[in-house]
Design a protein around this nucleic acid. Structure first.
Lengths: 295, 295
DNA sequence: AACCCGTTCTTCATTTTTGTAGAACAGCAC
DNA sequence: GTGCTGTTCTACAAAAATGAAGAACGGGTT
């Protein structure tokens, strides 16, 4: 950046040297090295064609010309502070966007968010319900609550919430009619409903197709809620998250959790969002409380 | 300069991208490369925590946040321009300081300066008469009219004015009494006056001591004007600049110029002063006209 | 569909800037 | 006079910034 009245930041150095009385003291204030401060003043003097300071072994003494320029430099500083304040305000009023599968937006979770909001009135939230994993680095969301079958992008900030566990479930209605299998070796003769779509990993569907005959899968859905409804109404058995359905009395577990389907449950934050103080504060507040839901 | 809201100059880039609509067009305006512009915007976005532009293949589109910041950025720009204007004013009112041996401040030279001033009313001059060579790089003067026996500091801007030529002079009074020598082999029996001081090269004095007996030098002065006066009054013969005395009828030349005493006559300008537009304009105006005096 | 143009992004080389370490200087206290 | 402290300046190494070149993309025109 070599042209024009080039480095506006040199004005900031000028003010600091003026106020502190020496390049060494200014360098401490500005957290840069003293030769750098001296050099920036040299450049500014060269660019303005003015001698701004008289050098001495006890510091820099401002010339009459420098004194004439100080109020103007202070006006620039004030403008920059207003810009920075406005930028900060704009950042603060941006909602924190949380993405998760909709069923993860539980009442308890909303409670935790509300508790945080009670103490942080100016922080807004936006909930992006999606089974597809929104791209945090692309800015589609700030925070994701997600099952991580593969290692998440290492650039993302990561908080472990729990390990999600899965089992096979049926309804009372189905059990009264067909009974329930007691183990994975007991699936023959039963009917199953499943969930399958293009834009998410089909781990559960694959598990089923590896353990039962194709014609045992009587229904397949692209929405999890619809699959759950089918299980509830007795259409067939289906795989579901243990925690997700444990309060739903119409779901009956067939047998223990399926170990190979266990998966880490993470809270992921984009580094860009994490730079915002309110996001950091929220993560610190939320993660342990949310994790507690799953204990 | 890595700290704080760091590079105020990025605001300038922000404004340019906003106004031009693309980093490429802005880079042309700012006279820097396009990747640099893009990078500066990236940094500003990171520092503010805001997305300021939406990227497309047809340019950068400002976000609502950016639009909110534009007036504030423009206020900074206005403050910077005021600072620059004030600095420029302060520079302009500084006189151009010209140093030379006083006899070089001839009427014709003053005329040339006045001609320049007529068309540049706000440019002031200060004439520093000195036989000692003031230090331009130390800021003792801006412009020097000087005989350069050694190569001048290469950092100085240099304009050739003429070659100064020297010869031996006497007065009518002296000639009537003693006659004048016809060549350098004809100096025996004559009397000489000379100029010698600690802070200038004593080339002429040395030439004399190499060509005449010590007791032939009847007077030595530390001021050139005094030596000239002694020549005029017939005290003795002395070495003087051909051009300097050619209009003075009381000086009579003894013989041709002394080749070994010829020396370049230069106009030297400190680079610091030369950065000022009015100094550059003055040099361009003055040098050829001043050189014309010596043709 | 192919081509052109304007734009952004990426990679690598070069340049510029900054930091570190040490020398030199002046002023003050003992 | 000596030693200490604070300061500025200088030289060299390291880090950061910039520029050049080229790839990729999208929109418009033929």
């Amino acid at each position: 950046m070599k042209n024009g009245f080039r480095n506006w930041s040199d004005i900031r150095v000028f003010l600091s040297v003026f106020r502190e009385g020496s390049t060494l003291a200014a360098s401490r204030k500005l957290k840069v090295s003293q030769p750098t401060v001296a050099r920036r003043i040299d450049v500014l003097e060269r660019e303005t064609g003015l001698t701004l300071f008289e050098r001495g072994t006890h510091g820099f003494k401002p010339t009459p010309e420098a004194l004439r320029l100080v109020p103007l430099a202070e006006a620039i500083e004030a403008s920059v502070l207003e810009f920075a304040d406005c930028a900060k305000d704009l950042t603060s009023t941006q909602p924190i966007r949380i993405t998760a599968y909709s069923a993860n937006f539980s009442a308890r979770m909303i409670e935790i968010v509300n508790e945080f909001s009670a103490n942080n009135q100016d922080v807004a939230f936006e909930f992006l319900s999606s089974v597809r994993a929104l791209d945090l680095t692309a800015g589609e969301a700030d925070i994701a609550l997600r099952l991580a079958r593969t290692d998440p992008d290492p650039d993302l900030i990561c908080r472990k919430i729990s390990t999600a566990r899965w089992s096979l479930f049926g309804s009372r209605n189905y059990a009264d009619k067909f009974g329930l299998p007691r183990s994975t070796n007991d699936l023959a003769g039963h009917q199953f409903v499943t969930f399958q779509r293009d834009d998410v990993p089909n781990v559960f569907h694959e598990w089923l197709t590896n353990h039962v005959e194709p014609d045992q899968i009587v229904m397949s859905f692209t929405e999890l809620e619809l699959m759950h409804a089918a299980i509830r109404s007795g259409q067939g058995l289906g795989i579901s998250n243990v925690k997700l359905v444990e309060t739903d009395m119409s779901f009956i577990r067939c047998f223990d959790e399926i170990p190979e389907l266990a998966v880490p449950h993470l809270m992921l934050i984009s580094p860009e969002a994490y730079r915002r103080p309110e996001v950091r504060a929220f993560v610190k507040f939320f993660a342990p409380r949310y994790a507690a839901i799953y204990k």
